[in-house]
Amino acid sequence: MTNEKDFRTIKTLNELKVGEEGIILSYNDKKYYNDKAPKLKNNENQYNQLKRHLLGMGFVKGAKIKLEKIAPLGDPIKIKIKGYSISLRKSEAKNIEVELN
């Protein structure tokens, strides 16, 4: 069962190590909804807003992305995307899937 997928390393953005880079594969919407399974519409709204916000900030499919730094206390993280730096909490990064270079 060798297929192309076996040669790819896919991680969620919060799992990246400092200095690792890759490209954005997708937003894992399903995982998000399953995690918070029975929970409220409010959460769903917040998630959609976050996603919309991130899209505007350049987190689109295929964008190059790099984990630059982790804050001294372990969270949030500093990310390089589209030529600039942005911070995200790990909990907000965990729905973004990244394929490592």
């Binding site: 409010n42 959460n43 991130l54 900030m57 949030p76 942005i86 911070s87 995200l88 907000e92």
Partner: peptide
């Protein structure tokens, strides 16, 4: 109630 602001902030 139930509101957290994401920490999406440009550095």
């Amino acid at each position: 109630k139930g509101i957290t602001t994401p920490f999406v902030m440009e550095l």
